[in-house]
Amino acid sequence: MKALVPVKRVIDYNVKPRVKADGTGVDLANVKMSMNPFDEIAVEEAIRLKESGAVTEIIAISVGPAKAQETLRTALAMGADSAILVETDDEVEPLAVAKILKAAAAEVQPGLIILGKQAIDDDSNQTGQMLAALMNLPQGTFASKVVVEGDSVTVTREVDGGLETVKLSLPAIVTTDLRLNEPRYASLPNIMKAKKKPLDVKTPADYGVDITPRIKTLKVAEPPVRQAGIKVADVDELVAKLKNMGVA
């Protein structure tokens, strides 16, 4: 069974985003970019499934600018077998990404599509569920455990009160949560090898998908800034403050 792993190039997890002065978006010029952390977990899970024999081939795919090739090379260095870049400089909304992925999946014919539950830039948390809807496939979102057995996959999900387990018929879509695994670092020899692995470049038009945005961003602003308050010297002073506030 093949695994298709969609990955997104986003601002690095450790960088504090700055809103542009003109309020049109977040300043990404000269900012360190990386693979979306949840997608890294998805790549790792696909590799582990390949190591256990459940998956035979891993295809990474990204929708984004030419530089997203770097993100795909990271996936290849970690252990993906081949990659597809669907190149566009436009911002592509989750619904359009899902349509592109559906078209790509029709060619690749994966048994499992595994991707991050959300990207840390737009925080939408939509693409996996939308893809499942468009393909009429089951979805195991926010996964903390994935077990493939025969023609089904059992997914343990992180939900509000704890954990929940569902059984899905394959093919299926799985979206990853933080505690599914700890992604490996690519070794230097594997980074070198990744440069020779196949990477196809396509466009949204190749898949016949209209990526015109449905949502207009009117303005992007900094959140209200919280001012640092006071420091108290000891517990007694803290207790006095708490009592003043009516706590305890």
């Binding site: 985003p17 809103v19 939408s124 939308m130 009117l218 959140p223």
Partner: peptide, 29 residues
């Protein structure tokens, strides 16, 4: 196209929502 996690309703089709872990608040229509 879904609008996730709205913080306010600004108009019939206009909302604010957090992006970048709440470091940027987008007004979207």
């Amino acid at each position: 196209m879904q609008i996730s996690d709205i913080l306010s309703v600004e108009g019939e089709k206009t909302f604010t929502r957090p992006t970048y872990a709440g470091n940027a608040i987008a007004t979207v229509e």
